[in-house]
């Protein structure tokens, strides 16, 4: 009844799961980054309503577990008559989660740009969008790169909860294998190694960017 798994069977399947983790992380980062920029603009806007909306958005999606967000998107929207595929739900959930955090990280970076820069650019009769685009963001970008890459590590690990809507990514593959083989130490040890292999290069990259920035300053 219980199939014998070789170590290679376990590794092979975990690699397969790792591909999903990678794909989901990329989606989260690209879409979440784009949406995060949008939220950042709203958050920094001079319009009070826009500010409040962005603040509420950030509070809501930082203050609730990603797992529950995915659950509500995937199973809640169909109850309202909107059918959602797993990919759409994952993309939506991960985007909400990632953008909320990135917008907040980036806000800190934008605020680190000296006030004089805002005033100087305003005196040049630049509008808000132009100020952001040509003056503020290029300066904020240097500060933002390291924490942004650092956060990407959390996104990679965060994709594990997509198993609630049916994705067989690295963690889920690990738990399926642990339940089929009863060898949790081998399986979860390898799962940890898999995440480390995905995340450590990102951490190193963030470190080197941080150092570069410090030198440049």
């Amino acid at each position: 009844m219980f199939v014998q798994f070789t170590t290679w069977d376990i590794v092979r399947n975990l690699l397969e799961g790792g591909k999903w983790t990678l794909a989901l992380s990329l989606i989260a980062f690209v879409l979440g980054g784009t949406a995060g920029l949008l939220v950042l603009f709203l958050r920094m806007a001079r319009n009070r309503v826009a500010q409040a909306l962005a603040k509420g958005y950030i509070e809501l999606f930082q203050g609730t577990p990603l797992l529950m967000q995915l659950f509500i998107v995937f199973f809640g929207l169909p109850l309202a008559g909107i059918d959602v595929s797993p990919w759409l739900a994952a993309a939506l959930g991960l985007t909400l989660f990632t953008s909320a955090y990135l917008a907040e990280i980036w806000r800190g970076c934008v605020e680190s740009v000296p006030r004089g820069q805002w005033e100087a650019s305003a005196s040049l009769a630049l509008g808000f969008t132009q100020q952001m685009r040509h003056v503020i963001l290029p300066q904020a970008l240097r500060v933002a790169i390291a924490p942004t890459v650092g956060f990407s590590v959390q996104v990679v690990k965060g994709t594990a909860v997509t198993s609630i809507i049916g994705f067989t990514e690295l963690t889920k593959t690990g738990s399926m294998l642990a339940n089929a083989t009863f060898q949790p130490f081998l399986v979860f040890g390898l799962v940890a190694a898999g995440y480390f292999a995905l995340c450590y290069p990102l951490s190193l990259y963030a470190k080197s960017l941080e150092r570069k920035f410090h030198v440049a300053r």
Partner: peptide
């Protein structure tokens, strides 16, 4: 720091509880 930040919390918890 690197070992903890680059591995999932679930695995850390399993290691402590079962390991």
């Amino acid at each position: 720091v690197e070992a903890i930040r680059n591995t999932p919390f679930l695995v850390q918890l399993f290691f402590i509880f079962f390991g």
